[in-house]
């Protein structure tokens, strides 16, 4: 393996990992507040469709991104309203949101092109790759990490910030408390329902960004079933990353990386059946994340927010 090959593998890995990581981070913040949102796939797909449609007609990628975030916020607000205020079952509501979102997105894809026609095959504004001067000269890491699109760079900043927020700040502590022991948080004066609303909506925004990245940076166009199950992979990554943003990054990169590797292996003409190689990213991501959490799992419980999926009702015992 030479340097050029490593650089290309890393580039593909990061490019594929960006949308996955946005969605995973969105779900981590949602679940940390105690709300399970299984609508990720639907929100991502609707985000991808609206982002592309708006960007195409307005000729502005940024406007597309903004609307995708708004749509993500609106869809997750629906989820929040149903599950927090109306206390509907979170699993059922989330699944409904995914079914609704994927259907709506397919419909928009068929109708939101010019003249009410399909959006398949259209070319719209995109987030291009912008090399960062100086940094791109670092060997290996430079051309792979610092020759990405603006959404990837935002993620580089967002990731440590999110980890810091969650682990080291008071609002982060409150967020964890709301998800772990809402009654105690309530006693301390933390507005439980409001927090849950806010973080669910914030998470939805990130899922919208994940969709926008798919249709405006990674694929640069709309296609039916554009998410291809990435929303579900994000939900799995949350669990294997034990609700930790940095570990989620490891998982997302690993998943993309092994995919790129298995393509390379197939192309090299190996005799291993392709269906077996296709399974590899799932297998290794699970394996590695299980291994890195092994030690902690033995020492304490896995870090799932204790009140995840349970509606909070003041004065009621759990």
């Amino acid at each position: 393996m030479n340097e050029a090959m490593i650089v290309s593998l890393l580039t593909i890995t990061i490019r594929a990992g960006v949308s996955l990581l946005y969605a995973t981070l969105g779900e981590i913040f949602t679940e940390r507040s105690g709300i399970l949102n299984l609508g990720v796939e639907g929100i991502m797909m609707t985000g991808a469709a609206t982002a592309f449609a708006v960007a195409f007609h307005s000729d502005s990628a940024w406007l597309g991104l903004g609307v995708a975030m708004l749509v993500g916020a609106m869809m997750s607000f629906t989820h929040a309203f149903l599950t927090i205020t109306l206390r509907a079952d979170q699993v059922v509501t989330g699944l409904a949101l995914t079914l609704f979102g994927t259907g709506l997105a397919s419909f928009m894809g068929q109708r939101l092109g010019p003249g009410g026609e399909t959006m398949v095959g259209l070319q719209g504004p995109v987030f291009p790759r912008i090399p960062i001067p100086v940094l791109e000269d670092i060997p290996i890491l430079g051309p792979s990490m610092f020759n990405q699109d603006v959404l990837a760079y935002a993620l580089y900043l967002l990731l440590p910030l999110m980890w810091f927020y969650l682990r080291k700040t008071q609002p982060g502590l409150h967020l964890r408390a709301v998800g772990d022991n809402p009654a105690a948080a309530d006693v301390l004066g933390v507005p439980v329902k409001l927090s849950r609303y806010l973080y669910t909506i914030f998470g939805g925004c990130l899922m919208g960004v994940a969709g926008a990245h798919l249709s405006m940076a990674y694929l640069q166009g709309w296609a039916q079933n554009i998410t291809g199950g990435r929303g579900w992979i994000a939900i799995a990554l949350v669990i294997f990353a034990t609700w930790d943003p940095l570990r989620a990054a490891v998982g997302a990169l690993l998943f993309g990386g092994i995919n790129a590797l298995q393509f390379r292996l197939q192309a090299a003409g190996t005799t291993i059946p392709s269906s077996f190689l296709n399974m590899m990213p799932y297998f290794f991501t699970i394996l590695v994340l299980v291994l890195i959490t092994w030690g902690e799992a033995v020492r304490k419980r896995l870090g799932a927010p204790a009140a995840l999926g349970i509606p909070y009702i003041r004065e009621e015992k759990h």
């Binding site: 694929l219 039916q224 296709n278």
Partner: peptide
Amino acid sequence: NVNYIGSFSDVALASEA
């Protein structure tokens, strides 16, 4: 170089390949 991505519909995976 031949790749089978294991899906008829995953557009993003096809672009990755």
